[in-house]
Nucleic acid binder design. Sequence first.
DNA 1: TTCCCTTTGAAGCGC
DNA 2: GCGCTTCAAAGGGAA
Length: 367
Amino acid sequence: MKELKPANYHVREEMEPMTYSSLEFDFLLEILEADFDNSPPPDENPVEDGFDPLQPPTEGDMPHGAAPLGLQQPVLPAPGFLDALNDFPPLPPNYAPAEEGYHPQQPPTEGDMPQGAAPFGMQQQVLPAPGFNVAPTDFPLRPPCYAAAADGYQPQQPHTHGAMPYGAAPFGLQQQVLPAPGPAPPMYQPPTALQPSYMQPAAPCRRRQVNNVPANLPRGWEKNLTAVGYINGQIVYGLPNYTAPPVASDVPVVKAHAPRKRKFYAEPDESKPYVKKPPNAFMIYRTEQRPTVAAELQNRDCAAINKVIGQMWRSLPKEEQAIYYGHADRERQLHTQMFPEWSACDNYGIKRKRIRRKDPMTDYSAI
DNA sequence: TTCCCTTTGAAGCGC
DNA sequence: GCGCTTCAAAGGGAA
């Protein structure tokens, strides 16, 4: 049995202190502001000619290979169609992929498309399953605008204590900044020990005002609905009294593997600070999208919100996911450099005992 | 007060 | 190498 590695919490003392420079940040901000200034205005009516969402579809309307009516099917927007709908600036051409050999700027091939997806250039209409309502909204949640300067958001302004992320180091402590390997993409703000990028306040996206309340329904109707999916940029709601069809009683329940219990756990050591795991790409995406989705759903239930964000993530183009994978890579690199002896096993079995700690200094970003 | 729910991805153990 | 478990975030709700 492999022994657990003892955590090393003295890494910081061995590191050479660095001072924060805003030079790179100013450069990124200039690029982004110029990008926004030159970006075309959002298309207020992106619906294609001849497409009437109010008309019920027929089987003949479905493209070859599409799922039968009533089945949910994840759909990737075809290249070109996405651009027409996207009111966000395109990826900068000099974005550096996080790993060698991975080229998120390369257009997807047929092999990248899910089975049954429409050919490139064709819009595929996805129909809600019976029993579901598709809220009439223009809610296609777009990826976050990492540094899209918004009114009232001044990243160059010093934080107040109220603006500091949970677990951030107190003012006056010199922070260490680890340079991102290679040229930093303009849309990416390198994480710092002071404030990992996923904890920075996400600038609000340039989105049109959403009005997803139909005129013939009473105000607040959507509160009685439950979000059950995300299709073609629209949240799919289940009716309040909708229940899934029962599974046939003769269908055997197969349990492929008996649950195995961990034979090891890290002995909780209250004298050691709790070092969190670095977030993965989805966690970063979720953190940024959660406020917007929660506002759209008018629902603070994280389980329902995560369902929607999960579908959004799966329908996100690969090149946009690559931004978050690269982001997560940098978070991991920072974490590894600060806690080289840390292992994910260190947190096994002690998370629930410390997750509600009031002491915010357990966050690695505070070191 | 604690844990569950719910998502995806990373990490690491067990087989 | 594959399967499984745990944890990362987050807030309502149940126990």
